[in-house]
Amino acid sequence: MVLNTAVLPPQAPASIAPAARRRGRSRGTAPGEPRLVAYLYLVPALLMVVVFVLLPVLHTVYLSLVKWDGVTAATFVGLGNYVDILTDPQLRALFLHSLELVFFFAVLPISLGLLITALLSRRAVRGMTFYRSILFLPQVVSMVVIAVAWQWIYAQDGVANQLLGLIGLDRGIAWLGDFTWALPAIGIVGAWLSTGLCMVLFLSGVQKIDTSLYEAARLDGANAWQEFRHITLPGLRAEIAVALTLTVVGALKSFDVVYLLTKGGPGTSTAVPGYEIFARAFGRGEAGSAASLAVVLTVIIFVVSIAISRFSKEPEV
């Protein structure tokens, strides 16, 4: 997910655009000069986006209105697929799983990132370039490779149990096959992917906060928590919004990590909407209902990104 989505480039948030627009407005003009030549610069790229992104999306919307197995003739069913989605209690469970993943993919990494940032005394850290390179490494390698590595880690005789054994907690659980632990186990892979990203983001963000703010706070006798609460946190608002959008959207869209690690199992305990879409479209020949689920998921992702952008607008985090 996040940067590493084997399928897609990272979900850079649409929510950020309004921020830029606000800024433009506050200066009274949009950036740049009025120039119609701009269209010429956009044409080639726009053509590609229309043909290879927008048309397939419109096509998906059309498919969501039919019943189609992918090979025989389709039947038009109107909003029937959507009604099915709304009345299917099992689908609700999938969205709840996504919600749990949001905690692991977003809340945990951002909290950890902030914790590290808070520990940092705003001095240059020797070897920071090295740390950053390592922390960022999970984003560089293919999800296929990562999945293989984590499958071994979670095996009954894998590294996870080996480490737990060091503190006497190895119960011989095969993590990906346990109804209670499989979803958190997938979540931890997501947290592992995005923690480095969040840290790199926050650590560089904090370097840009005006030092004099801290000096002033110290003169006023502020303690470490107050410094963090009143200077660091507000100063990182933009980075937090970015991290939040990336990771939350990543959690909602998650597909490959589930596809490669558990295929939704055991039972359906790790099934998420992204995986269900794929399973319906490719496994069961339900292209229409898969498309309607995709439309619903896209709408949810849009709403969430907009909500996050609204949130990041508030003066207090």
Partner: peptide, 28 residues
């Protein structure tokens, strides 16, 4: 660096690809 009518709409058009879940559009 330029200003032109429809700028925001076009920009959102470009952004669309970042948000949609790709698993479904791959069939169409």
């Amino acid at each position: 660096a330029m200003r032109f009518p429809g700028r925001n709409l076009l920009f959102f058009t470009f952004l669309f690809g970042l948000l949609m879940p790709f698993e479904a559009t791959i069939v169409p």
